Simulated assay, not measured.
Amino acid sequence: MMNAIPPDADRVVFDRRELNLILSTYGRFVAAGEWRDYGMSFLRDAAVFSVFRRAAEHPLYRIEKRPRLRAAQGAYAVIAMDGRILKRGHDLAQVLRVLDAKLIRPID
C-alpha cells in the first residue's frame, strides 16, 4: 500500500473538507453547463482553485485560501475574472455561496 505524499511545509494546500466544498460547487456548475475545466495551484502564500469556461481562457473565478489573512478579512476569497473580490471571509461554505447567485436564472 502506498503512503500519501506528505504536505510540503512551504506551500499552502486545501484540506479534504475544503476540496469537498469546492468540488461540490464546481460539480453544480458543470451540471448546469456553465463551467468546463479547473486548475489548482499550491503556492507559498496561497492555494488557488481556478474555474474556466474553456481550458484555453482566463479563469472566470478564482477561489483562494490565504492563511496570512485569516486574522484580518478571512483566509478565503472568491475573485472574479476582472480581479474584483466578490466575497471574502472565514467560512469557506459561506464565501462559496456568492457563486450560487450566478446559477439562478429566470426561465423564459
Rank of each mutant, 00 (worst) to 15 (best):
A75E: 10
A31G: 13
R44A: 14
K102H: 11
M81V: 14
R84W: 01
N3S: 15
Q94C: 10
N3M: 05
F49M: 06
V48D: 01
Y38W: 14
R17I: 09
P6V: 09
Y26N: 03
M81E: 11
L69S: 12
V51D: 05
P59A: 13
R54F: 15
S24Q: 07
V12D: 03
I104R: 12
R105S: 13
L69M: 03
R54D: 04
E64G: 07
L103Y: 08
R62G: 07
R53M: 04
A101I: 02
A32W: 01
E57V: 09
L96Q: 05
E18M: 07
I79H: 08
W35T: 15
E18I: 02
A75G: 13
L103A: 12
M40A: 09
R11D: 01
T25G: 07
Y61W: 14
R68D: 08
H58P: 15
G74V: 07
Y76K: 03
R36H: 15
Y38Q: 06
F49V: 09
I5N: 02
M2Q: 09
P67N: 05
R66S: 06
T25P: 12
F14C: 11
P106E: 03
G74S: 04
L21R: 02
P6T: 06
S50A: 15
D37L: 04
N3G: 15
L99C: 08
R97I: 05
R97M: 11
R11E: 01
R53S: 14
S50V: 05
L19H: 12
D91S: 11
A101M: 01
F42D: 10
E57N: 13
P106C: 04
L86F: 05
R28I: 06
R88M: 05
R68Q: 05
L99S: 08
W35N: 12
V48F: 00
L60M: 09
D37R: 01
M2H: 13
I104S: 14
I22H: 01
L96P: 15
V98Q: 03
L60D: 04
L23T: 15
G39I: 00
I63T: 03
V95K: 02
L60T: 12
R54P: 08
Y61P: 11
M2D: 11
P7I: 00
G89C: 12
G39D: 08
V78M: 01
N20S: 15
A9I: 06
L69Y: 09
L92Q: 10
R11F: 02
F29V: 10
S41W: 01
P67A: 06
A55Y: 08
L86W: 02
R17Q: 12
A71H: 03
P67Y: 04
L96G: 13
D10Q: 06
M81W: 07
R66P: 13
E18D: 08
D15T: 09
R28W: 03
Y38P: 13
